[in-house]
Amino acid sequence: MDITNPIRLAVIVASNREGRFGPVVADWFAGRTAERDDFTTRVVDLADVDLPTALSHSPGPAVRAELAKVSPVLAEADAFVVITPEYNHSFPAALKSLIDWHFTEWQAKPVGFVSYGGISGGLRAVEQLRQVFAEMHAVTVRDTVSFHLAHGQFDEDGAPKDPTGPDTAAKTMLDQLGWWARALKDAKSTRPYAG
């Protein structure tokens, strides 16, 4: 664990629906990263960003203003964690827009996932995101954190009722993410990524 040069982690809260459960999961996860000296964390909440689904090579002023909220955070990040629900066996449209409006920001960087939902715990969304991020030249880490029937997993204070499993899963995923982030950062310092 290198605390002298912490990994810059961008945590993306993917849901922007009214009444969403994402902030509960994001707050819990932020607590896990705050316990570690090898990461510095910035949160990108897609409820605060309004990117259109139609892409343009010359976006107008409104789109440029929205991109200015997120693009610098993504560009500066060494690694990402996506906190996503599962909508209709997939991931939210706001997340797809964020991914599609960027390219070099994702390249040769690792991505981890924290998912939540019904019986599948958001894992179908994660499996689709692995394919999307592969196309963006990002590396997804194997282990994830998943909350099945998520609303019943947390108490009224927003903490997992049984934190042992989620805390262990978060540690494993963050350890893998840190390893990949350092390996890729070191490789890019020696040789530019051939994207």
Rank of each mutant, 00 (worst) to 15 (best):
D50A: 14
L55V: 09
V114F: 09
K69W: 09
I119L: 12
D38V: 00
P52N: 01
L95G: 00
H57S: 14
K109D: 07
L51N: 01
T84Q: 08
L67C: 09
H89W: 15
T84S: 15
W106N: 07
Y116H: 08
V44W: 02
T84Y: 05
P110H: 02
T41N: 05
E105V: 07
Q107Y: 05
H89L: 14
F91H: 11
G117E: 03
G117R: 10
H102I: 04
V114D: 04
T33P: 04
P85I: 01
P72S: 09
F39Y: 10
D45I: 08
A54H: 07
A62W: 06
Y87D: 15
P61V: 14
G60Q: 03
N88Q: 12
A79M: 11
H102P: 13
A54N: 08
F80Y: 15
L98M: 09
K96H: 12
A47E: 09
I99R: 07
E66R: 01
A94M: 10
L67A: 10
D38M: 00
L67D: 10
T53N: 11
H102W: 03
V63I: 15
A34P: 14
D37M: 06
L98T: 07
V82L: 08
V49H: 06
S56L: 14
F80A: 10
V70I: 14
V114T: 06
D48C: 04
D45L: 05
H57Q: 15
D48I: 05
S58G: 04
E66V: 11
F113E: 08
K109W: 03
L95Q: 04
V111K: 08
F103N: 10
E35M: 13
E66S: 05
A34W: 11
H57C: 05
V44Y: 03
D100M: 07
F39T: 03
V49R: 01
G118M: 10
D48N: 12
Y116N: 11
Y87P: 00
D50T: 12
A47K: 09
S97L: 03
P61Q: 15
I119T: 13
P110F: 02
A93K: 07
E76A: 15
S71R: 14
R36K: 13
S56V: 10
V81E: 15
I83K: 02
K96S: 13
D37S: 11
W101N: 00
P52A: 08
I119D: 12
A47P: 08
E86I: 13
D37K: 04
F39G: 07
A62H: 07
E76K: 13
N88P: 04
L46C: 06
T84N: 09
L67S: 04
R42T: 15
V43E: 07
V70N: 00
V114E: 09
S71V: 10
P59V: 02
